[in-house]
Design a protein around this nucleic acid. Sequence first.
DNA 1: TTGACATGATACCTTATGGTTTCATAAAAG
DNA 2: CTTTTATGAAACCATAAGGTATCATGTCAA
Lengths: 105, 105
Amino acid sequence: MPPIQSTFRALADPTRRDILVMLRDRDLTIAEVAENFDMTRAAVKKHLTVLSDGGLITIRTSGRQRINTLNPAGIATVMDWLTFFDVFWDDRLTKLKSEIEKDTP
Amino acid sequence: MPPIQSTFRALADPTRRDILVMLRDRDLTIAEVAENFDMTRAAVKKHLTVLSDGGLITIRTSGRQRINTLNPAGIATVMDWLTFFDVFWDDRLTKLKSEIEKDTP
DNA sequence: TTGACATGATACCTTATGGTTTCATAAAAG
DNA sequence: CTTTTATGAAACCATAAGGTATCATGTCAA
């Protein structure tokens, strides 16, 4: 699994997030992805490389085509990182409770 | 709520993610956050501004101090975006099922 | 009020990053 | 075999982004 930094970095660009949304419906070649953007195929390929480096997509070669597939594991990695904050409010409430009990003997 | 781009942008830097982790335990002033990093207070302040722009923290002024607090709503925004991909596998399985049924009359 | 402390704000520097252009390569079609 | 077609790769460019240094401002304490 790639370093989490490369995953967050990959998600920081709007074009790359749009690509992920496209790939949710079906796998796409570089050319197919590029059709949806007003930029060169070379630029799109760079974005796909960054997404791959971040573990958000996987790539397989079929003849002269390169097919890009969404990788749920990459999404899950980010989800996992975020769940660290899930207990945020719980902790806050616990501390608040302690304070109250301490002040009301 | 801030544009999602500013939120993802804020998360893309390792220093800023570390700051969020620190703020999970308790609120901190700029100086307190800066103590944990090998960079100037000015740089840390910039990071805190980016985090605020992304809706990941809130800021309140208390005298001459500026207290930074984690904002769960910002985290939730990212979570929500990611849940768009939750149905990914469901959709894939549904399509696969259709294909099978079509091919086996 | 005076001095120390916490922060605000600006200018400036270096490196990443997103993008284009151009040329090379490899597979499918004629 | 020749010609498309789809991609790989490298050089180059402009701007954004992370940092520093410096100076201004506001507040707490003596």
